[in-house]
């Protein structure tokens, strides 16, 4: 482990705040990672953020960054264009993702051949502006993400509201679809798009496969609407105060917020107070 026997200079590399163009190290022992570039033997930072070091790999993590997909990520996207045999999907990334007609489940018959008539009625499945819950299947040659919705839990989103957060606040975890105890479903897309909706039992969709591509909301009572709005505001405030967004942190924020009216949740003092509350509870838990 020669990494441990380094000079004072290289040991304080990590946890330093740098701006674009500042020298991170002159030491050739290091490899450059994300957020850095090398010129001759020197490694420079290319973004403003904190320097991180894992063994010999030096990278800079910016405060804000766009989502860069990985295979297997669960994401939420918005259809921007219906093209031939494919949909373009805004996934909060550098490029639009692509959802091929061949990688969706068609209603009726799981393994049915895609016919020409399916191509002609693509808008009945997903039209521009629809929100999709999908998984990253692979990359295209140019780095664009290829998505799929080949499972009954994926598909079109309805009955709820849309929230955008910093993508780096949503950690990758085993499950991204949660039913909260307050009767609200949330879909935490790792690309920073979150869907908060009324709870609809999965069995209901399984019984009636026509519901997968339905555009119609079910009846949502005033109480349910308020709970959805409260959860959405809780996610907003966690995002604003830079707290990790998981089902536990959302539940903590929700429980703490019950003493306030929904519309007051985003006022500065209450937001800071609630976020602090969530942070301490998360620390206690771990």
């Amino acid at each position: 482990m020669d990494v441990d026997m380094e000079s004072q200079d290289t040991r304080d590399i990590a946890s330093r705040i740098v701006t674009p163009g500042s020298v991170i190290t002159n030491d050739t022992a290091f490899m450059r990672g994300h957020g850095t570039f090398a010129e001759r033997t020197t490694i420079y930072s290319s973004v403003a953020g904190a320097v991180e070091r894992i063994n010999k790999l030096v990278s800079v993590r910016p405060l804000k960054q766009r989502y860069s997909g990985e295979i297997g990520d669960i994401i939420v996207g918005r259809i921007t264009e219906v093209a031939s045999k494919r949909w373009r999907v805004d996934v909060n990334s550098r490029q639009d993702g692509i959802l091929l007609l061949s990688s969706i489940n068609l209603p009726g018959g799981i393994q049915r051949r895609k016919s020409e008539s399916d191509e002609l009625q693509m808008r009945t499945f997903f039209a521009e502006g629809d929100l999709v819950f999908a998984e990253v299947q692979s990359y295209f040659a140019d780095g664009a993400l290829s998505l799929h919705t080949r499972s009954l839990q994926y598909g079109k989103l309805r009955n709820g509201t849309f929230v955008t957060v910093f993508p780096q606040l949503v950690p990758r975890s085993r499950s991204h679809f949660h039913t909260l105890p307050c009767g609200v479903d949330i879909v935490l897309g790792v690309n920073g798009y979150i869907w908060v909706s009324k709870h609809v039992p999965a069995s209901k969709v399984e019984e009636n496969s026509e519901l997968i591509y339905s555009d119609k909301n079910e009846f949502i009572s005033d109480d349910e609407r308020e709970t959805i709005a409260r959860i959405a505001n809780c996610i907003h405030l966690l995002n604003r105060l830079y707290v990790k967004i998981t089902d536990t942190s959302i539940i903590f924020a929700y429980e703490a917020s019950l003493t306030h009216a929904v519309k007051d949740l985003l006022t500065r003092e209450i937001a800071i107070d609630l976020a602090h509350n969530v942070k301490t509870r998360l620390e206690q838990q771990s």
Binding site: T19, G35, V47, K64, Q65
Partner: peptide, 10 residues
Amino acid sequence: ADAGIELYDI
């Protein structure tokens, strides 16, 4: 820099 776009320098 605020947008986190990679720059050679400011």
